[in-house]
Design a protein around this nucleic acid. Structure first.
Lengths: 174, 174
DNA sequence: GAAAATTATTTCAAGTCTAAAGCATCCTCA
DNA sequence: TGAGGATGCTTTAGACTTGAAATAATTTTC
């Protein structure tokens, strides 16, 4: 990630170097890696526990979590967007959840292309049983952080999300 | 994720409710989801660009990135640990990178179980070509954040990582 | 109102990922 | 020194993931 082969031009003095080295971005890179490793650390841990304690995969859990909030169910495309995974991926997960009796799938009234999925009673019951423990795990990760740090982190991540979205948008317009 | 079915016992008044609802953890849950979505947003974007501009997958790039920092190469287990992916996964990625001529693999001197991988000249050259652009993308994500927010986020994520690690350790000792 | 463009989903191939089992090698300690 | 355990890696089966192409339905446009 460092670029030892990129030498600063000799006419750049120390002062200039600090303020004008657009090609380096070392701090940003480290921040990204740190963000990523936090995320991965937690995600892996959740995945393992969900599997070992409930024999349920994280992607399946994530879909149920989205559905638990909406009684009217959700269209597949909406689930795909919220979980930030491809549409093709959702198809097979939904198929599995229908087969295991956790959700139902019906054609949307008014748009025969769209599929609406909903939790079944079994799905809701089992999701909530898992969610109760799941939320305890999560709380544990943050347990050793002061409340004010948690609040601040929440704000900063909101800022980052906005910044990132804008950056992605901007590139797409090009 | 919300638990509408969990009613507070009636003897808990409003005051108590605020300070003593250990089973809810709504803020922590939201913080995790926000962290996760930031991470996923960025990761997905990087993956897409790496693929479309260099026809190179993110997992392969990640391995090269680890190797670029160490001239003496790395043992597979070390790569696995740093990237936080399973050992079995590394095996096939390494196989591919050897086949495409980006890295070499040799048995570690002194331990015939261990495999050391190193960048080839081609690997280093191609990695750095990609890394240059890659670090620009990263910088863009953070571009709209004030420097002091970036610094603070860096600190808070370090705190979170520690907190999370301890939480995971603590559970494993049980 | 029909062609063209868009949208929602499915299918497919190829790649990534994990956990668990297996193999080979190394280390420990009596 | 040699049995037992630990370590490093590979193999395997199965689940997840993506992007691209295909299908079907809707909306737009002229």
């Amino acid at each position: 990630m460092s670029h030892p082969e990129e030498q600063d031009p000799v006419w750049i003095d120390a002062e200039t170097t600090v303020s004008a080295r657009p090609a380096d971005h070392i701090m940003e890179l480290r921040l990204w890696l740190r963000l990523f490793s936090c995320s991965r650390l937690i995600e892996n841990d959740i995945r393992r526990h969900l599997m070992s304690e409930f024999d349920f995969s994280l992607p399946r859990f994530d879909i149920l979590a989205q559905l638990d909030r909406s009684d009217e169910g959700l269209v597949l495309g909406e689930v795909s967007k919220r979980l930030m995974v491809s549409a093709g991926n959702i198809t097979s997960l939904v198929e599995g959840l229908v087969k295991s009796g956790h959700i139902t799938r019906t054609t949307a009234s008014g748009d025969r292309r769209a599929q609406v999925i909903r939790l079944t009673d079994k799905g809701r019951r089992e999701f909530r049983r898992m969610a109760r423990v799941h939320s305890d795990w999560i709380a544990n990760y943050f347990e050793r952080m002061p409340q004010k740090d948690i609040d601040r982190l929440m704000e900063l991540l909101a800022t980052l999300k906005d910044s990132t979205r804008q950056s992605i948008m901007a590139r797409q317009e090009t």
